[in-house]
């Protein structure tokens, strides 16, 4: 399957840490809000704590912008929880996450090239 060219999201870069972390969290599949918080807390070692206010403020923006969407169908079986709402990335959201990751990678290789790290990290 050929991938359609990514929509132009360059105007959105750089993404804020909160937005990027949420997109990353949803990169592995649908999640509900609290799970996103747990995921982010785990990955950042507790550095970024997405409490409800911050989280849903960001989710509201991403929803309105079309970067994520709320699920109509529920995931099957044991993962389901009736009271929770699940979100997943849209193509746009994935594209945005990809673009940000690529940007960071480019920065990282420049840092390496300029020997900013004593050893390969």
């Amino acid at each position: 399957m050929t991938r359609r060219p990514d929509p132009d999201v360059s105007g959105l870069l750089p993404l804020t840490p909160v937005v990027f972390e949420i997109l990353l969290a949803l990169g592995s599949g649908e999640q509900h809000g609290y799970a996103i918080m747990q995921d982010v807390a785990e990955r950042t070692g507790g550095r970024i704590e997405l409490h409800a206010g911050t989280l849903y403020r960001a989710l509201s923006r991403l929803l309105d912008g079309g970067f994520i969407e709320e699920l109509d169908e529920r995931p099957a079986g044991a993962h389901d929880d009736q009271r929770r709402r699940y979100y997943r990335l849209t193509a746009l959201g994935a594209a945005a996450a990809r673009a940000e990751a690529e940007r960071l990678e480019a920065q990282l290789s420049i840092a390496r090239a300029r020997r900013l790290f004593r050893r390969n990290p």
Binding site: H51, G53, T54, R61, F67
Partner: peptide, 28 residues
């Protein structure tokens, strides 16, 4: 976090109205 969220939302709404729209929210 929730206490700070309320004014943050309102400020963001004001900025959207008066200055420039949120690029993420209005991307589509």
């Amino acid at each position: 976090d929730a206490l700070l969220n309320a004014p943050a939302l309102r400020l963001a709404a004001m900025r959207d109205r008066l200055l420039w729209p949120d690029p993420i929210r209005s991307h589509h």
